[in-house]
Design a protein around this nucleic acid. Sequence first.
DNA 1: TACTGCGTTTAGTAGTTACTAAACGCTCAT
DNA 2: ATGAGCGTTTAGTAACTACTAAACGCAGTA
Lengths: 174, 174
Amino acid sequence: MPTSLSKIKEDFTQGLSQISRFWGFPKGMGAIFAVLYLSPTPLSLDEIVRETGLTKGAISTEIRALARMGLVHRSTKLGDRKDYYEAETDFYAAIRSILKERQNSEFDRAIRSVKETLAALDENWVENEEWQFVYARVQALQDFFDAIDSLGKAVIRLESLGVVNVQKILSVLK
Amino acid sequence: MPTSLSKIKEDFTQGLSQISRFWGFPKGMGAIFAVLYLSPTPLSLDEIVRETGLTKGAISTEIRALARMGLVHRSTKLGDRKDYYEAETDFYAAIRSILKERQNSEFDRAIRSVKETLAALDENWVENEEWQFVYARVQALQDFFDAIDSLGKAVIRLESLGVVNVQKILSVLK
DNA sequence: TACTGCGTTTAGTAGTTACTAAACGCTCAT
DNA sequence: ATGAGCGTTTAGTAACTACTAAACGCAGTA
């Protein structure tokens, strides 16, 4: 017995909702993106209301967040007062946009605080065991963050290279 | 005017708390890890109470989560009924452990649901435009997840390769 | 046996979050 | 002007989360 296409779409939307929630975003955000992503044409706010069951207000605020992240784009038709929204399909571009958006966020300030700890330790150099121990540990954490950061920057360049290059990276790491 | 080492430690702990919260974990979890990470010796539960200001109960539950993730290790001394905890310093090992722990989590089930959508589409093949469109989009998302997954697996091998190799990767991508 | 010192579990709570419902303001058409 | 049709903002709420305080269980010891 075949499953209907609309049922499949619902399941897909459900999946993206959970993924969204896992990453700390509202699940509605994932649902909105899913609906747009599976639509061949840009959708109006009311159409999204119909597809997701959310209210206009919620969608309005969440779609603004999605747009800031570069995951959806807003467009208009001439002689039509509605806004229309469509999903970004280049995920690497979206990631780059998200990371840029995040630039001055809580996250980066937190990461930076580790670097500041290191600086504070430098300025208050004392020649004792505890100091040396703390310094080494904080330094090690900083190195780790730097490594992750470098890799992150590498990832967001994948778009211009094509996914095939992932294999190249893996072969380097072998 | 020099800052005291204990003040520096506090700031560091504060920073890790925020990082922890950003990743969707309780901020207390970050604080506990920070305290352990900056301690040259394993600490007892009561010592962690003293350093963090949290209650035993909270620390008890959160340290269990940290242990599951491989971020802290529990040990005991002979003839001492206390447990002692210390931080994992090999972050790549910790990441590997976290990903393993996550294996059957909500996240993986969600990711898997995309693959299931693809399978459902395969089983209900119909030769029309909408079907083809949806199939192509879901396939593209799946490809993206696969690429990220490959990179993730690459990252957790960095430990055995040394951070230098990050430069190698970057040069490949250049 | 009772006591002491552990870690754990549980009940309750303050704060946060993801929403809804509805008022609002803006822009265009009449 | 007035009204209709948009998106946005706001006030309120139900559900959830990260904690606290305190009871609990379970050793080893006197």
